[in-house]
Design a protein around this nucleic acid. Structure first.
Lengths: 212, 212
DNA sequence: ATGTAATATTTTGTATGCAGAATTCATAGT
DNA sequence: ACTATGAATTCTGCATACAAAATATTACAT
């Protein structure tokens, strides 16, 4: 087994995203490079490199002389991001292999149904949702598009921990996932794409109230 | 007048993109950090920071221990990128202020017509095309979307200097721009978005033959 | 001549050092 | 008490230094 050999900046990036998901940082907090580097046990150089990539993804923002900070959240930006991923995922679905979609459709349906039953932790809910969407788009051959979606979604993770608690809105999401899967089973790709867009728009509405 | 105070990494990024447009680097070339830093008169640190952002935009790619290099071009990737910007610009047009569009539509038409007349240098053609699209999308309030479009287009610049010479395909592009503007003047936003998508798809077809 | 192993050189990835900007703290004046 | 001014401190941005990996070169054996 070859041991993991990736640049430190990537490992640091991943670790920071993990901590972001855990809610360790709140939006607007500015980052002390020296302190964070010490905490991670690395030097400032690869840390800064990680911060720069995160800034490129919209997770952080940087100001000359003032360093990096977690980009503040706003309803406006959240709306913007949802509109973007909705369009991108719809495109990804459009350019997916129909054979793949037909094949995974039953599994997508099963996963969605399973999930509407049991109530889970927030972290699990999000992981499940991500995995579901990944499976849905697994048949898309546009690699750049998939990368882009991943990147934009990274920028959205600042919002995910705001939704905390309450499982009710999730039932709606599960329903919508079922709907998408059903369209796919019926072979209606256009309908599925449209339902997918709705899923994002509705998801947006659901979260919107919790954002300042 | 406040003098320009931007991080060095951004200036370096801009300079590198400029040189890319000039065709100084060909795709696949790997970058020697020390040499390039010396040539630019900066240290490796901000240079690497610039390289990392460019890698994030897909202009460069990096391999552990092997540094950065200009990402190789391929028809597949070019198709992918065109599909992405087509979708993103269509979305931007959808979420644009109709009042703005109505106001700039005549100007867009005039610019497109003017340009179909005089033959220009490649650099000028591209600049004109970029400016035309910028004006078109100037009424979009989704800032993240505009940033994203800029970023994806940066990744496409590797392809732009491949098109070199030949002005004939440009006449077609000008025609298409006219068409879009006419839809806007008629107030048919849906038609304009559709024509915009066509513009990208056709533009892709036009260039495709010159890519290895 | 060709292929291979050992060594030298180059080049990246990471750490450290340093100058200047931004912020904080203290002090003086109103 | 509050503001303004200036010194002290902290922190960023950039440069340099160092270690390890990758590449090139040489020597040698077949």
């Amino acid at each position: 087994m070859p041991i993991e050999r990736r640049p430190l900046r990537e490992q640091i990036r991943d670790e920071l995203m993990l901590r972001l998901d855990r809610g360790d940082f709140s939006a607007g907090t500015d980052i002390n490079e020296a302190a964070l580097a010490a905490e991670l046990g690395v030097s400032r150089t690869p840390l800064r490199e990680a911060l720069i990539t995160l800034a490129g993804e919209g997770v952080l923002e940087s100001n000359q002389g003032r360093g990096f900070r977690f980009a503040p959240v706003s309803r406006k930006e959240f709306r913007e991001l949802c509109a973007i991923v909705a369009a991108l995922e719809a495109l990804a679905l459009d350019s997916s292999d129909p054979v793949y979609l037909e094949r995974v459709a039953p599994e997508l349906l099963k996963l969605a149904q399973e999930f509407s039953d049991n109530i889970a932790e927030r972290q699990d809910i999000e992981r499940h949702d991500d995995e579901w969407h990944d499976l849905l788009l697994g048949g898309c051959s546009n690699e750049r598009l998939l990368d882009l979606i991943t990147s934009v979604k990274a920028g959205m993770r600042r919002y995910s921990h705001l939704v905390a608690g309450e499982s009710t809105p999730m039932e709606r999401a599960a329903e919508e996932h079922c709907r998408i899967a059903e369209y796919l089973i019926a072979g209606d790709l256009e309908g599925a794409a449209s339902a997918l867009r709705d899923n994002w728009v509705n998801g947006m509405e659901r979260m919107m109230s919790r954002i300042p």
